[in-house]
Design a protein around this nucleic acid. Sequence first.
DNA 1: TAAAACCCTGGAGTGCACTCCAGGCAAGCC
DNA 2: GGCTTGCCTGGAGTGCACTCCAGGGTTTTA
Lengths: 153, 153
Amino acid sequence: METTAEATGTDICVAPPEREQRRPDGRDNYTISEVVAFTGLTAHTLRWYERIGLMPHIDRSHTGQRRYSNRDLDWLGLVGKLRLTGMPVADMVRYAEMVRAGDHTYLERYELLEATRRDVRSRIAELQDTLAVLDRKIDFYGDAGRALASERS
Amino acid sequence: METTAEATGTDICVAPPEREQRRPDGRDNYTISEVVAFTGLTAHTLRWYERIGLMPHIDRSHTGQRRYSNRDLDWLGLVGKLRLTGMPVADMVRYAEMVRAGDHTYLERYELLEATRRDVRSRIAELQDTLAVLDRKIDFYGDAGRALASERS
DNA sequence: TAAAACCCTGGAGTGCACTCCAGGCAAGCC
DNA sequence: GGCTTGCCTGGAGTGCACTCCAGGGTTTTA
């Protein structure tokens, strides 16, 4: 029975305290549960990533258990970053395929990264805009509002 | 037949050119399709927002068609901002309910906004982090890589 | 040597945020 | 009057990214 007991905090956006452990150097061979501890992903998700082609072929122990290398962890690090830009998993799979395909996909990969960068930049801008709106709204709630805040959004 | 022909651009993250029209001032009464033009949302989505309680009760024409006010558009503006912070729709509904409930939810609303602001701040930080990773990667692809980029991520 | 902990697989299920469908009014215009 | 356009409803369907299940191995601890 896999120990997957992570509470499903439906509460407000206070991201769960998922402190990802630092990986010890000097090793190059981790079990799936160690990778879970490093990345914050679930074992299910890790296996799913592999199935859909988002991961390279992962080494196996003599009994068929997955053994992740440092390189795999690096890749998962990149995937994690890309994931929180909102890039669809399908696009990451395309990137992974290009990496596997070899050198001739070089330019294409470059372009995908560039496009992603533009995307991230504009998303940051959007969020800063939103932040400004929130600041104004919070100010309003903070000072004036107290007594006369009947509705007005 | 509703004119909903927006191509489903599965392409890279180049956000579709959804230029939202500016709303003419001096009016306070818009049809659903006008609101579609202003917000970039679909009519389906607007009706759905209403059903789930994310919108206040919208005025109707004598034949039962929706007539949105400027205030409704303002609210949709806020919703749009919150939406792109990644706030779940359910949380926005809670906020909408508090607004409808009146003054005594004042503090709660304030706290929700504060929490959201913290969340947005940390998301911006994450994205800036990601941006740094992308920059490094793109540099690598740009200079050195060209010839020797065999795999190495 | 038994129990507990950890891992495997294919396939089904879940939650979210839409998105679409079928069937049907109402208004404008040719 | 007929046609088109725009809007209405409840409910079913979709796509994404997981998430879980059943059934079964292996490895470690007591």
